[in-house]
Design a protein around this nucleic acid. Structure first.
Lengths: 338, 338
DNA sequence: CTGTTAGCGCTTTCAA
DNA sequence: TTGAAAGCGCTAACAG
């Protein structure tokens, strides 16, 4: 007789344990009404066969996939990459699998396509690491028959969609006030791309802090978050001898600015003070060590998943925004104006 | 009459189009034997209802989940984070979803647990971004009823399991020969953790290149890939005035070394030349711009998925190793010995 | 406490 | 070219 090679199913366990497959199901799902002796027999059979429940069958029967989707971008940015792990860990602890769908470009069609793919897998909720306005538009266009949480999306655009983000404006203000407090007449800004709400929030926070101190706000330069863009901005800044303080919207651009200032013969922090944003692991080891605004990416990831799971389990739709407080880490790239 | 709120199923589409659900299935799966007029009607009905196939039902019926699993680590390293995207994109293009399972620590139980979770979801194959010996042990212990591909795992330990990796020894030799060619008497090495095969391969490549040139191989220092570890190693190196060339097993440690040498008053590249490994995006903008060995992470990701898909579709088990060639990128952190 | 029955939404096989 | 029937492995509802 030939036995087909297939993974053991519940019926096989049931057969071996001498019970019905239903009883096996009860054991698997920790139902209370199973005699402990029966349970033990079933567990033994499960072990003997190396039984693994079939997720597809369970999903089909319960209409619950135990999976959450994660929309990511094809980015080399530190924050998003890091948060993937934090989210996966939080999901695992909450009993969910994580399925990812990445969009190459942060435009509306690609984000919608990513969401479509995730829904096809019947994910129970979606976290989108999509801090781009286009992603946001896509979210609002979705039927939203599934809970969605945005990670790092600016408040103004979050019409009724729950989100978790750092308080970018507060972080930018922290950086700007720090520089003003060191005696700098004003603070220049290297901003992120205008289609990123986080970039706009940081720029707004910088501007507000300057206004609060009655200082003129110079025109901001804009980069794409990369060190290369920071380098270009830094060269432009270096041409102006009145520039003594620069706040960059992220650490990678700050690295480029440091490089450009160095090439132009302007010393940091002696001639120019520089502040970044993120606190990447390398920040303390740059030349000079970078003063920066720290984001707790792990916390952001955990919070977003908690918010999602809450929506999934209560069935409620939230529209709240959770803001995490950033902190300023002062290192060697800033000093009192001479 | 009350209609229950549930996503449209195939039967609903069939009903609307006036055909059997079977015909709808044929349309969905692009079967040839459907009259084009019928097909059009079905497609119209699908659009009208915004029909989405139920992945769980399909998986249950076909025993194919169209999903590949990805084992990752809770790391802030650039390479692994970046490869996640490359793999996801390649998977999408090949018609697969990607489910991730991350292990907090690279030890055997956690890797096995990650693999167990993925198998529970009936993934058709697994890519493991687990360049750690423990992960490797775990892979070999698995029943392997599902194809597995390792990414970045050293050859010696890859008994019969297919893998894709950069040629670490060749990359290390490239770096070492470059330094020797500049006239340095020998090259010191800041190695990665000994339980990472990649670290061991790089160390072996460095040692081999020295031996090939009949140079003494100094004792290697070991770090954990972080800039902090590089800093510590750099301080130790700076105490020895005979050190003129350092090859670091990754760029992050090189950043720490640059910092430490600077603090110790040793100038790079004037007094000491430094080479990294990876070519992170910031490398050209460091002070000085970092000479380093470039890995094409995107290519590694694509290759690993191609190898996996090949195994899935042919049903064959491979044990081949694909090695990608690294290249040396010479920048400002290395120069001829004085 | 345990077993029986009836689907979940889809694909596969066979028949028409 | 289309339809009918059976079953993938599991859970929910009910019966005992």
């Amino acid at each position: 007789m030939h036995t087909v090679r297939r993974p053991p199913a519940m019926r096989d366990v049931a057969h071996l344990a001498g019970v019905s497959h239903q009883t096996v199901s009860r054991v698997v799902n920790d139902h209370p009404n199973v005699r402990s002796e029966t349970r033990a027999r079933v567990l033994a059979a499960m072990r003997a066969l190396d039984y693994q429940p079939n997720a597809a069958a369970r999903t089909l029967a319960t209409n619950r996939s135990q999976t959450v989707g994660l929309v990511t971008f094809d980015t080399t940015l530190f924050g998003p990459s890091f948060m993937v792990h934090a989210i996966e860990r939080a999901a695992r602890e909450a009993g969910y699998f994580v399925s990812i769908a990445s969009a190459r470009e942060p435009d509306v069609p690609q984000v919608r396509e990513a969401i479509r793919r995730l829904r096809e897998q019947a994910v129970e909720g979606i976290v989108t690491l999509a801090p781009v306005a286009a992603a946001w538009t896509a979210l609002r266009q979705e039927p939203l028959d599934v809970p969605i949480v945005g990670l790092g999306i600016a408040s103004g655009e979050a019409d009724g969609v729950p989100m978790v983000a750092i308080d970018n404006a507060a972080g930018a203000a922290l950086a700007t006030r720090h520089l003003l407090g060191l005696g700098h007449a004003t603070v220049h800004h290297v901003a992120g791309p205008a289609n990123w709400p986080e970039a706009r929030e940081r720029q707004a926070g910088w501007r507000a802090a300057l206004e609060e101190a009655n200082r003129p706000a110079p025109a901001a330069l804009t980069g794409d978050w990369s060190a290369a863009a920071g380098y270009d901005a830094g060269l432009a800044l270096a041409e102006r001898t009145d520039v003594t303080a620069v706040f960059c919207a992220n650490d990678q651009m700050a690295i480029g600015v440091l490089r450009a200032l160095h090439e132009a013969g302007r010393r940091v922090p002696r001639d120019v003070s520089v502040v970044g944003f993120d606190d990447v692991p390398e920040a303390p080891y740059l030349l000079p060590p970078l003063t920066t605004v720290r984001q707790d990416f792990a916390e952001l990831g955990r919070h977003s998943l908690a918010l999602l799971v809450d929506q999934i389990s209560t069935g409620a739709r939230r529209s709240e925004q959770q803001r995490c407080a950033p902190s300023l880490i002062v290192r060697g790239s800033t000093t009192a104006v001479r």
